[in-house]
């Protein structure tokens, strides 16, 4: 019973954290958003602005994420193969 109460308290803590941090007033127009909408097409040439971000402005992050995938694949292959 006591342990159940602790678990519920933990979930409530996380929930309270999420609710508190998501509330409040926030600007709708942000600098990067304005910048990309204004220059995205002209600077990268990609008609799709999402693409202009992830393969233009932030191509390095995309490279990083493909490396994360490569790591995950190599890790699974390595660990799975030798556990047979």
């Amino acid at each position: 019973m006591g342990s159940r109460a602790v678990e519920i308290a933990a979930i409530l803590v996380v929930a309270a954290f999420l609710v508190l941090s998501l509330g409040g007033e926030h600007p709708e127009e942000t600098p990067v958003r304005a910048y990309v909408i204004e220059h995205g097409l002209a600077q990268t040439g990609a008609a799709n602005l999402v693409t202009s971000i992830y393969l233009g402005y932030r191509a390095f992050d995309t490279l990083g994420e493909t490396i994360v995938l490569l790591l995950a694949v190599s890790g699974v292959v390595l660990l799975v193969e030798h556990r047979r």
Binding site: N48, V50, T51, E65
Partner: peptide, 10 residues
Amino acid sequence: HGDLSPGGGF
């Protein structure tokens, strides 16, 4: 068609 429409490599 990732550069033209929604989608892309991933």
